[in-house]
Write a protein that binds this DNA or RNA. Structure first.
Lengths: 213, 213
DNA sequence: GAAACTTTTATACGCTCGTACAATAACAAA
DNA sequence: TTTGTTATTGTACGAGCGTATAAAAGTTTC
């Protein structure tokens, strides 16, 4: 009498998604070292052998999890932005506030980001993903900045606009890092407030940060 | 007849340093996964058993390498700063320029930083080191800023000064990250130039970035 | 130069790793 | 109901891991 585990078949999409999520959970728990095929499979509720049925090797799974993470962070930072009604300035403020609050700025995302980033030299494809997501985020910043400047009637060269994108992106990245490192070092909303103030200063615009009476 | 490897004894300090440097080399080469006791020992030119003679376990060696890395980066960012003769404004400019050029902003440091950072959730002591070095760097920024504002006769509260430190640190961290990721995306000196411009804007001072005629 | 001491080597142990693959259970088609 | 397909399991393999420890070699002490 055999006593094999009973199971139910699932769609390819669900299985891949389960494995990716399990990978994220392992990485969050204990870094890359925690993300072994066996542990990932256990968290996903399948046996280790199945992983190779959906991913050619471990690197492919890690890369998929990295892509998924970056997509999630990008989406979280832009949550509600498409539907947002208001001026370009309001939209930029909304984006900065969203990016620097717990939906994006939290230790889970930081752990995932740091762990995957550290593999850019070990897995060539990771470096590609890294660069792609960086440029995507920076372009997101740049477009919002462009709309604000256009709204205010300011003329600006393409090169200058790119520089603004680089600076605003740096500011948000830096504040995000600080907040992820130690949320408890900062009173709630402080980093978002500082983000608004510094972007305002860098772009030489007014009305972005709230007057603090 | 035995054929043991011949060797010469070395001072504790040299051996520890060799092992720490070897650890850094391994991490630079292929991330944390590359930094096994055996490989580290091979790079350091000793046998694996010796590692345990100088470090109680692997985590201790990794932590020591992390501390060393942070010390090196901090020193590299402040290279020549103590001996620097000039106004507080010149000193701040010097610091920003140094921090955003290849002595500090390079892929090796980035690889080390990212790899070690990713272990903050796996090795408790790493989180401590992370926070310590973050605060040390931020305080460095803050002190430079304070001197500039004092030089210009600007009154400022302690809280406001801290906010400046947080913002300047975020800017430098963010630009450093961008540069490490892909130096070739930026023309030489661009990020330092943008660093000067944005810090100038954030602090609402003048004369930090060069006029670009 | 013999003895004591400590650095260093060398080997072994138990574990986990990524991968490979044959057996089998679940489901779809006929 | 039978047959065919494939998603899934379970086991095996070789390699590398961190650690422990006894033996040996280098150095110092007397």
């Amino acid at each position: 009498m055999s006593s094999r585990k009973t199971y139910s078949r699932e769609s390819e999409h669900k299985r891949r998604q389960d494995l990716i999520i399990a990978t994220q959970q392992c990485v969050i728990k204990g870094g890359i070292g925690e993300a072994s095929i066996r542990r990932i499979a256990a968290v996903a509720g399948v046996t280790p052998g199945l992983v190779r049925h959906y991913f050619p090797d471990k690197d492919a799974l890690i890369c998929a999890a990295y892509r998924e993470t970056m997509d999630q962070m990008f989406a979280a930072a832009r949550l509600g932005l498409e539907q947002f009604q208001g001026s370009a300035l309001d939209k930029l403020r909304y984006f900065i506030n969203t990016s620097l609050q717990t939906g994006v700025m939290n230790s889970h995302y930081h752990q995932l980001w740091a762990s995957f980033t550290s593999l850019t030299c070990a897995i060539p494809e990771m470096a590609e993903i890294h660069r792609e997501s960086y440029l995507e985020f920076r372009m997101g910043c740049q477009d919002l900045v462009e709309a604000v400047l256009h709204e205010q009637g300011r003329q600006i060269s393409d090169k200058e606009l790119e520089h603004y994108g680089i600076m605003v992106n740096a500011l948000l990245d830096g504040l995000w890092l600080e907040g992820c490192l130690a949320m408890e070092l900062f009173s709630k909303g402080l980093l978002a407030e500082l983000g608004l103030r510094s972007v305002e200063a860098v772009l030489a615009i007014k009305g972005l940060s709230e007057p603090q009476n």
